[in-house]
Design a protein around this nucleic acid. Structure first.
Lengths: 339, 339
DNA sequence: CCAGGTATCGCAATCGATTGCATAACGGGA
DNA sequence: TCCCGTTATGCAATCGATTGCGATACCTGG
């Protein structure tokens, strides 16, 4: 089939071991520059491609990384995957992508099958806060968490600065004159949901605003759940003039709720989303939202994991936070003056 | 690290080769059922995981499939990827996913790196109609095309029945009373764009409608390009009452064009999309569109490729067409009666 | 001219699973 | 009782790259 080291060796008239050294940048200095040149030429002529299985078998490193995503259909993740793929690929690594559907059982199963594939490390984007797998897995593999942090185990992670993002949203609303601001929070089991909810409470307090009865968490990251949730909030407290949603789906659900109650967004109630998924600029109304740098999160996570793979000694656990920005569109405006 | 066949062999007191045969369903009949049972128990006790590199090195089959996608950020593809992953995973295969950004150079590079990884086959979703790579690649690997067909080389493919989908759209508009129907077509180099454009012409003719000057192709699958394109069409022929767009992005661009010309959709001009991407139900106006079964396309392609991997003998080239359906929403209505 | 380096390269073992071939045990028919 | 065919298992080569160790040649300073 494809050419092997032995073929090159025969062609040049040297031993396969020397060919191996010549072709490996890390060991090329051990072999005569002239032979290196000859080897490279022969390799190109035979269009030699190293067999990763043979190399992997010997070195027990597959140069693959398991990437575990809750749901690829959620537009938040493809961007991150892109970032991961690009920087991993540049370093000669290949991501193995899987979906968990947010199901812990499926996740265990998939992680097991990735382990069987002998991945060199993991990038996990699964959202659950309490996860028994994490502790075990982190003992056997280098791991980087993305779009979340772990509160039980201390693990490297790359995520958005949720505190900052939520603050941006609230400062924006406050600047517009809003004082009665509610929060449609993410599921309690979700890491990001939890963080953003806490950030909401803190930022509101910093602005001297009250949050009592103004926070309600959905049971799942769905438009329908947010619809119910926002409806409940507004009914309980009709004075509400603005809603900060824990992500864009929840913002969409909140807008649906507002429409469902025969009120208008942003005229009656302003809504701010989070993530800036694709197409959020063309929904009705175009959504003001906090944009998280999805590509950067992915590439940063890949970089972090790669660095862990080379310098195994370092014990420092890096937790990277990327700064989000506020995207102003049309779902927010001044609160209506009371007549 | 992990247990090997030798470990199991030692534990049971037999030769590693026997263990290998016992664990392989295809050869298990060669070994005494009693020993098979003992081997399985021991394997479970040591939680043995076969080393795919060792197996792959010996058998030169990696049990991986290269999956080449133009752009994962396009919501059309994650669904297909899901379908692929699910059925490949069930068969013990792992997809290796890459993005090409519709760039032929990047594509060649990525395909090369997947070949280096010794994938067992390819699933290609790249859209270009004329592709030099295809012919060469198909000689060395089993290949299945998705969401497109090849017109130069005869290759297995899984795609939507574009003819049927476009017909659904036109029948719908015709039934509403539209007669002046235009088509915002996909790029000429695109397989789907080309097919849908041809289907448009044919279906229009079948309804006795004229298409002259009513078809204009965009240069890229973007909202902006469609905006320009639709603007041009409408200006050239103000009588137009409906637009069939070659996909949802183009439909969104067409709607933007209508709004930009201070006209309204669907009151002044109806628009039908294609694909039914996520969130097309909440854009303004909610988009009437032709839904293609994304998951099914993916899983069908995976099934097809897997079947090609086992029965290498068969020379028949299967070309599967899946039936799309029309999703009625609010971007279409009766044409306005002339005053 | 020799001892001690250094630069290059060959040798052979190794990673873990697979598989053609050989071998041993066993049972049944002549 | 002997021969032959199954059945069950062992043996050893093999896949292709990596790498510790040893060997050779060459060079430099003393």
């Amino acid at each position: 089939m494809s050419a092997t080291l032995k073929d090159i060796a025969k062609k040049v008239g040297i031993h396969p071991a020397t060919v191996s050294r010549a072709l490996n940048p890390r060991t090329a200095h051990l072999v005569n520059p002239a032979t290196v040149a000859k080897v490279k030429k022969a390799a190109a002529a035979l269009d030699y491609l190293p067999n990763p299985m043979a190399a992997g078998l010997r070195t027990s490193r597959s140069h693959t990384i398991g990437v575990v995503i809750p749901d690829l259909n959620n537009p938040l993740f493809p961007g991150m995957v892109r970032g991961i793929q690009d920087t991993l690929g540049r370093a000669g690594y290949t991501p193995l992508l899987v979906n968990t559907d947010n199901d812990p059982d499926i996740e265990s199963h998939l992680v097991a099958s990735l382990s069987a594939r002998r991945v060199d490390g993991f990038i996990l984007a699964t959202a659950r806060r309490d996860h028994p797998l994490l502790a075990q897995l982190s003992e056997k593999f280098p791991i980087v968490l993305i779009n979340r942090v772990s509160d039980s185990v201390q693990l490297p992670s790359v995520a958005a600065d949720e505190q900052h993002g939520i603050r941006l949203a609230i400062e924006h609303l406050y600047g517009l004159g809003h004082r009665e601001i509610a929060h449609v929070a993410g599921p309690a089991w979700s890491s990001t949901g939890h963080e953003r909810s806490q950030a909401f409470t803190r930022s509101m307090k910093d602005h001297g605003l009250v949050t009592s009865k103004r926070i309600s968490a959905v049971s799942s990251w769905s438009i329908e759940a947010a619809n119910e949730c926002a409806t409940r909030l507004i009914k309980a407290d009709p004075a509400i003039t603005a809603i900060v949603a824990a992500n864009d789906q929840l913002a969409l659900g909140s807008i649906a709720a507002i429409k469902g109650m025969k009120r208008r967004c942003p005229r009656d109630i302003s809504v701010v989303g989070y993530n800036d998924m694709p197409f959020m600029d063309i929904v009705d109304p175009p959504l003001t939202t906090v944009r998280v740098p999805q590509n950067d999160i992915g590439s940063e996570a890949a970089r972090l994991l790669l660095s862990m793979l080379v310098e195994e000694g370092s014990t420092s656990v890096k937790q990277v936070r990327l700064t989000p920005e506020l995207i102003l569109r049309s779902s927010t405006t001044h609160p209506r003056v009371e007549k």
